[in-house]
């Protein structure tokens, strides 16, 4: 059991927190049809992280975080400029910016010899979830021991702070974000600047992806910005409920994904474990699939079932039977 607390628990905590912060903010990205923004941001932060790494001469988390923040804001502005000047749709503008900046990050990474150190391309994609260890842990009682808690991996502390920040952001601005996402013109006319709210959201997305990025890599960040929110959307028509459900799915994906990644292959006789971050993303995608198939109202199968029943009953349903998603 000691091994669980020392090696598995910190990884689970890290993966789950990363999934949670991204999953919560993803609700707004998905509803604003900006799901790609999470993808874009998680890529564009790479050059910032590398430059921060180089300038600080080592793995200073703060410098990397600042670098990532600067490149995220730079990218948001650049996307907006390209969208307007180039007169292209925002998806295309994002595509141009994030591939270019990610590529630039990879080039800097390889050219400056940082590649061998702590940052490499694989790390950028899958993160380094398994490397989180908590050697001071002796068992569950360590959770209540301040000295032991202080020795938790640094990334967990950062993500915990970011989690609090994200939850506070959503609680404080839930109605404003909802309004600006649904009807930007009304938001503007009521004095809730949709531009400011959109920018605040992207800044939070940038902070969340930077905090999650080094632990879990960009694949999990992208998956978590989309899957939990999209899964929850299939199950409810209430936005507050959707956000709560997305948090549940994010946490479930984090815990189940890690356990399956670490111990799943063992069950099939393999001694190699698979990437936990990758497995968490797979579990999140699996939840999405299940919801798409079986969600009571929007799922494919219940909808088919209802249509069939309606037809065989011969009576047109009073409710409008299907809703285009």
């Amino acid at each position: 059991m000691e091994i669980f607390w020392q090696f598995d628990f910190p990884s689970i905590l890290l993966g789950t927190l990363a999934a949670l912060v991204c999953g919560l903010l993803g609700n707004f990205l998905v509803l604003r049809r900006q799901a790609l923004m999470g993808d874009a941001i998680s890529h564009v932060v790479l050059p910032g992280i590398v430059v921060g790494f180089l300038l600080s001469g080592g793995a200073s988390a703060l410098a990397m975080m600042l670098g990532a923040g600067v490149s995220a804001i730079f990218a948001v502005v650049l996307i907006e400029v390209i969208r307007r000047v180039g007169n292209v749709e925002s998806g295309a503008a994002m595509g141009v910016v994030f591939t270019t900046m990610f590529a630039a990050g990879v080039v800097i990474l390889e050219q400056t010899g940082t590649a061998g150190v702590h940052l490499d391309v694989e790390h950028a994609l899958y993160g380094n979830l398994e490397s989180a260890v908590w050697l001071e842990a002796t068992g569950i009682e360590s959770l209540f021991d301040p000295a032991a808690l202080g020795a938790l991996p640094h990334d967990i502390g950062v993500l915990a702070v970011v989690t609090v920040l994200v939850v506070g952001f959503i609680l404080a601005l839930f109605k404003e974000l909802k309004l600006a996402s649904f009807d930007a013109l009304l938001a503007q006319s009521l004095g809730f600047s949709p531009r400011f709210l959109g920018f605040a959201l992207i800044v939070m997305v940038a902070i969340a992806s930077v905090a999650a990025f080094s632990a879990v890599g960009s694949i999990l960040v992208i998956a978590m910005f989309i899957c939990p929110a999209a899964t929850a959307r299939m199950l409810t028509d209430n936005m507050a409920t959707q956000i709560k459900l997305s948090a549940v799915f994010a946490v479930l994906s984090g815990v189940l994904g890690y356990l399956l990644g670490a111990f799943g292959p063992l069950m099939f006789g393999s001694y190699m474990s698979v990437s936990a971050a990758g497995m968490i993303a797979v579990v999140a995608g699996f939840f999405q699939l299940i919801a798409m198939l079986f969600a009571p109202q929007y799922g494919v199968i219940p909808r088919r079932w209802r249509q069939k029943n309606d037809l065989s009953n011969g009576a047109a349903s009073d409710d409008i039977p299907s809703v285009a998603l």
Binding site: L31, R33, A172, L173, K175, E176, K178, L179, S181, F182, D183, L185, L186, L190, G191, F192, R233, T236, D237, N238, M239, Q242, V323, A324, L325
Partner: peptide, 25 residues
């Protein structure tokens, strides 16, 4: 002008008209 697939009910949307009166946060 708006996305009608949004997770909101009729009364939710009407309540948006009251947001300014309620104010930020």
């Amino acid at each position: 002008a708006v996305d009608w697939d949004f997770p909101a009910t009729a009364v939710d949307v009407v309540m948006m008209g009251l947001y300014a009166k309620v104010g930020w946060f």
